[in-house]
Amino acid sequence: MQSGKHAAPSELLALQHSFVESIISHSPFELSQIQPVGSLSATEALAVYQGDYRARLTEALADTYLSVAEVLGSDFEPLCQDYLAIERSQSTDLQDFGNTFPDFLRQSACLQTWPFLAELAEVDLCSEWLFFQHATPLPDQSCLTELDENADIRLCFVPHCQIFVSEYPLFSLWRQRFVSEKALLQRPENLLLFKNQAGIQGHRLSAEQTSLFLALQAGSSLGQVFAEETSLSPEEVSAFFGWLYHAGLIAAFALSGQTEAGSTSFNKKA
């Protein structure tokens, strides 16, 4: 309450700062500043808010990292408490909290037991991001005929898609939220996560499809990928293009040199 004629009194800022630190860091707090209610002591009244803080932020993490929470079961909450000890909520919107959780997991000892956990957390985070995106309508199907006629054409993908290249079966873990012994074995899997008119979709891609997709996404023309980028047969490429179109992943077609329409992409940390 600082702007304008009546700036917030500095004592209010000091009071609020002191209270915040007592809740988050359990810093010493002058208990005589508060009158607890009911038969609570001042310490117990503070504990109500300290418990609420932990519960709300843990719940926010569980909402975002659904797969991680299910994989970890009862081990999830202690991990969240470790995260809360080093990470504060910066935004008034609780949904913003926890974007650095995958990085935290990368440094965590739990990675020894669950080596895929940080990557799975990235998938969960991307899935939440997709939830708040609008699906892009399919482009005119007649454009597909141009694919056969112009080697300079480029595919412009919808912004709401992300490929995860992993040494682990990420798709199975994200979809099934179940960890079998097989899942713990290294089994490379590439997951394409995207949003179309039917909602959030996950699709497993082969290594060749992944290379092709990434080359096209990077701006290679169809002619270039046929000449240099793929070991797939023309029939396999054609089938893959057909799937990309019908899955709603192609936003537009452009000739090389044309600028793609502005787009957003998954990079919540930015």
Partner: peptide, 29 residues
């Protein structure tokens, strides 16, 4: 209420000190 300070949000609906000074400041805001 207030819910936190920049860089440290508590996501709780916290009471204010009900003072005449806070009333003026809050009213203006």
């Amino acid at each position: 209420c207030w819910t936190g300070l920049p860089g440290a949000q508590l996501h709780n609906l916290l009471p204010l000190p009900y003072t005449a000074q806070n009333l003026r400041v809050l009213s203006e805001r």
